[in-house]
């Protein structure tokens, strides 16, 4: 706090006399944030322990470009089996871009190019012969905004198994749908209205439906891109519980803006800054004893 006041004193806009105290402090804060983001602290390589022994996903020297602009600079990271890895960092630092390159969702973006070595169980994700269809069945995704299909709850969950031909009989499909909804903690709430549109559920239920839809194809990895940012605290708590349960069977990478969430659900935390991976460590270490100056500045709320 002292630094903040000091910085605010140096900053120009504090001269404004008519503004009320609240907006004044907002102006100060944004000035501080702006300065911290533009700080000259050089990020040279990643500190902490980006690698682990039993890696499910392993990324080496990943660079992502949007046309000419480089969004990800030389990131290397392992995501361990049955582990929840949280990716945190200020907006626009490339964590979502990085997440989306793990199941090649970036392929659909015009002009997006991914370089480097990305492997899933030792197999190259960007290999010349890799088909994205089975890849995305293995690496599922949950998006920021709940996006159920405008179909019934049943059809939402059954869609994946249907297109991949996982269930051959109706009974099998029913079973998959029920199991997925149970695991997503939604079964009891929707079992009597499976034929009702999935879009009619509440935001939190919709997001759990999306998780049920993702796990219906038994993926090995689930990518979650700020899955709780559109939800209220109660719905968020349910999803967080769910993530903890899902860890038994799946490997999870989650992007989040909430540091508390990262602290609650993840085992390891990766801090991104301006397209660079600054620090990776056990979640506890990152939040109690960060190695890098920028990580500390971010988790203490000095900017971000």
């Amino acid at each position: 706090m002292t630094t903040m006041t000091l910085n605010a004193g140096e900053a120009g806009p504090a001269e404004d006399q008519t503004a009320n105290p609240a907006s004044e402090s907002a102006v100060e804060q944004s000035a501080v944030k702006a300065r911290a983001a533009n700080t000259n602290i050089e990020v040279t390589g990643t500190v902490g322990s980006p690698f682990c022994d039993d890696a499910k996903l392993s990324m080496r020297n990943v660079n992502v470009f949007y046309g000419e602009a480089q969004a990800i600079h030389d990131v290397s990271l392992d995501i361990g089996r049955n582990q929840v890895v949280a990716m945190i960092g200020p907006s626009g630092c490339g964590k979502s871009t990085f997440l989306r390159s793990l199941n090649r969702m970036n392929d659909t973006i015009e002009g997006c190019r991914v370089e480097g070595e990305l492997t899933l169980d030792g197999e190259a994700i960007y290999g010349p012969k890799v088909d994205v269809v089975p890849l995305r069945a293995r690496v599922g995704m949950v998006f920021q905004k709940p996006n159920p299909f405008p179909k019934s709850i049943y059809d939402n969950v059954a869609y994946g198994p249907k297109i991949h031909g996982i269930a051959s009989r109706r009974a099998e499909l029913d079973e998959i749908v029920e199991n997925s909804l149970r695991r997503a903690g939604l079964w009891n709430e929707v079992k009597d209205r499976l034929d009702k549109p999935g879009t009619g559920l509440s935001g939190g239920q919709q997001q759990r439906l999306c998780i049920a839809r993702a796990i219906a194809v038994s993926p090995e990895v689930i990518l979650m891109d700020e899955p709780c940012s559109a939800l209220d605290p109660i719905a968020t708590a349910r999803i967080e519980e769910l993530i903890d349960e899902l860890r038994q069977n799946y490997t999870i990478a989650i992007v989040t803006h909430s540091m508390q969430q990262a602290a609650r659900v993840s085992q390891r935390t990766a801090y991104f800054h301006l397209g660079k991976l600054v620090e990776v460590n056990d979640t506890e270490t990152v939040f109690t004893n960060p190695e890098h100056e920028l990580t500390e500045a971010y988790i203490t709320g000095r900017f971000g």
Partner: peptide, 9 residues
């Protein structure tokens, strides 16, 4: 909707 379907493979 496109992303959701694409994400399902």
């Amino acid at each position: 909707i496109r992303e959701a379907a694409m994400g399902m493979g």
